[in-house]
Design a protein around this nucleic acid. Structure first.
Lengths: 242, 242
DNA sequence: TCCATTGGCTGACTTAGGTCAGGTTGTTCC
DNA sequence: GGAACAACCTGACCTAAGTCAGCCAATGGA
């Protein structure tokens, strides 16, 4: 496939968006186990694209050919469900690999991924990915571990959504976001009330109500969109008993 | 490991419970791809046990070392959740392989499996299973496909539980049970009202109420525990709009 | 400058669905 | 036969949570 000069320039620009995979792979437990040659297979058709806030990175139902990995920025992945409501599955920070169970099955993405902040995304060809799994069993093992983690987390969320009531679900969300996603005692204002409601499967109004209640009880502090976790212990206790 | 005559006899009895793996493996898409020698690895420590109705086959939280496969009978798998309520994840018919995401991660079973009818279960050593995955990449690929299927189904159920109301969830359950599990227009009386309630995350009373409503509307027929699906089309429509 | 838009917030109202108390039926065991 | 028990069923009641209508504050054009 030879490129015209114009497109060659474009290709160079794309390349410039990140500094190649060497550094990325160091960040990823998964890619660290690859031999010297194996990344070349995956990198053959690799490309990266920059998305603005609100733009769709992957669309539920479209043909699933690529894994993606976020290099910088922040995104959410959600299922477009019934009655025009979305169920947010997860928020995606850099270095997390996102595929979709569909890549191995129906070849359709099972969820939509949308950029929340400006986001640089790397697209990895699924077939080349599978090729490497066939070559390197340690890589396949880690991939299975990753899938198991996704599945396990989805089971936990299923229980939370099905059996806890609103206070418990909001507590779960705040704990996950503050501890696992942002890694501080706060939830960034990039997460809107609607996002929180879509993550906890309730109406936006209800989510706001509970947050305000938590504020009244000095469990969280609300200031300009960001949520400060003031009393993590009580939040954990609400999560357990909710 | 030499066995005393007594235990040898026992071993022979256990062996007799099923007729060896040759026939089983033909039933399983997964095991069909194994070479002649590979099943021997998995069969090395294989054993089978018969369970009576209500007996626990795997217990959530215990050390996860084995995959299981049901040879005959019928079981349910559920998560022991909050407020002493169980969330039934699935009903298990023969030839389905059941592991747990925990086998690849925390080494704890994430759910409990209980026999509904008298059930013959085959236990497969997880390490030997992993060994074969490292040897046979086609086997690993099919296993990944199986995991993706589980994950995908859990996402669909998450949406159903979080966004549909009771009529829709019962419709979903009846469709799944009649079409995918029992493969006829009926749900066997082995499934109790409580099981149905635990599968759809509602109280037993509510499940009964909805079923009776469906009966009044001639969507299902209820006779002695079994549920006859009289109007699958309307059931599908309720599932869509519920 | 004014208007329009978006996101957060609140109170009043309505409804889905859980809980409880009691009733029926069928089954097992003495 | 009757006692004990389980699964199923029903109506009355109550509460969790959604809906709606409307408010405010910040932002962003034209």
């Amino acid at each position: 496939m030879s490129l015209t000069p114009y497109f060659e320039d474009q290709a160079v620009n794309v390349q410039k968006l990140c500094e190649g995979c060497e550094k990325c792979n160091q960040r990823s437990e998964l890619f660290q186990v690859l031999s010297e040659d194996e990344p070349k297979i995956i990198n053959k058709d690799r490309y990266s694209v920059r998305f603005r806030p609100g733009e769709v990175i992957l669309k539920q139902g479209t043909h699933a050919t690529s894994f993606i990995s976020i290099i910088e920025g922040f995104a959410k992945m959600y299922i477009e469900g019934h009655h025009d409501r979305n169920l947010v599955l997860d928020f995606v920070m850099p270095w997390k690999l996102v595929g979709s169970p569909g890549i191995h099955l129906t070849k359709k993405y099972m969820y939509t991924v949308v950029a929340i902040q400006e986001t640089l995304v790397c697209f990895l060809n699924g077939n080349q990915f599978n090729q490497v799994m066939a070559l390197n069993s340690r890589f396949a093992e880690l991939y299975i571990r990753m899938c198991s983690g996704n599945y396990g987390r989805s089971l936990e969320r299923m229980v939370s959504l099905a059996q806890k009531q609103m206070h418990g679900r909001i507590a779960d969300a705040l704990i996950y976001l503050s501890e696992d996603i942002f890694g501080q005692n706060r939830v960034d204002s990039a997460i809107s009330r609607q996002d929180l409601a879509d993550y906890t499967a309730m109406s936006k109004d209800s989510a706001i109500r509970i947050l305000k209640e938590f504020e009244r009880d000095n469990i969280v502090g609300l200031e300009g969109g960001t949520i400060e976790i003031l009393d993590p212990d009580r939040l954990h206790s609400i999560s357990m008993n909710g």
